[in-house]
């Protein structure tokens, strides 16, 4: 079943106010319809800037902190463009990371190394690799596109007081570190509340929980807190977001190798 068809089905259902429990859909169709609706609701933000603090913690409780700044430009019909600049630790201050994400193809990625003033093209097939030593993999922080997964609705469930869809997502792109993700999405606002990640042996690897959702521009829900715990190593990463600003006028010009070199 192609996406356009599902999109139409989904839109008709939503438009008619018919709940997804409509008996005609298979679990796969329903899972996809939820993803399409989620994507639709996230669509149109244009661009945003945000600051982030990452606290990495190991099993012994030792902490290491990173300060980062993100800029994102929405690209219609493809993955978004992202620019990430590091403030701390201080030895990697001004190190910057530019990525053009794509739905199924490998992302285009460049790294700027300030000591050498070098811009280096890097291979993006390392999707399962840890992002700056954290428990977030590169594939966890790139933009989520409908085409990146195949879907299967598992059940409806109450999660922390929210009526939620529980949907299984299987990566459709290559080089994922996961066999599948199981995602809890609240039925009212389509906010992701929790994700379980299963490794290549299909054992539970990590759990990501979201907290402190706020609504921006009267439409877009973004979390203040994302907490990733690795069940196999006991390590965790707390990712806290601050200073979200939307529609700041960013354009393609802010996402090229020149802007990467002077990113602050």
């Amino acid at each position: 079943m192609n996406i356009t068809k599902v999109l139409i089905v989904g839109l008709i259902l939503v438009g008619a106010g018919i709940p997804f429990s409509a008996a005609a859909m298979t679990p796969q169709e329903k899972g996809l319809a939820i993803a399409v609706e989620d994507d639709k609701r996230d669509n149109g933000f244009k661009d945003y800037k945000a600051d982030a603090i990452m606290i990495l913690k190991n099993r012994q409780g030792d902490e290491s902190t990173r300060y980062l700044r993100f800029k994102t430009l929405e690209v219609q019909g493809d993955g978004d463009k992202n620019l990430t600049v590091f403030d701390k630790p201080r030895d990697i201050k001004k190190t910057a990371f530019l990525s053009f994400t794509h739905s199924l193809d490998n992302d285009d990625q460049w790294l700027f190394l300030p000591a050498l003033k070098r811009v280096k093209r890097i291979s993006s097939s390392n999707k399962s690799g840890p992002f700056v030593g954290s428990e977030f993999a590169y594939e966890d922080i790139t933009s989520q596109e409908v085409k990146k997964y195949t879907y299967k609705w598992l059940r409806d469930e109450e999660y922390q007081g929210h009526k939620s869809f529980v949907v299984e997502q299987v990566p459709a792109y290559e080089n994922s570190g996961y066999t599948r993700r199981v995602v809890w999405i609240d039925q009212d606002e389509y906010r992701v509340l929790k994700v379980d990640f299963y490794d290549r042996k299909d054992s539970l690897l990590k759990t990501l929980t979201y907290d402190g959702y706020h609504k921006y521009l009267n439409q877009y829900w973004y979390p203040d807190e994302m907490y990733m715990v690795n069940h196999q190593t006991g390590k965790s990463t707390q990712l806290s977001w601050k200073n979200y600003t939307f529609q700041t006028g960013l354009t393609d010009k802010h996402f090229n190798k020149n802007s990467l070199k002077r990113a602050r």
Partner: peptide, 9 residues
């Protein structure tokens, strides 16, 4: 010139 393909650079 640099060319990236999969894990190759």
């Amino acid at each position: 010139v640099s060319y990236v393909v999969g894990n190759w650079l």
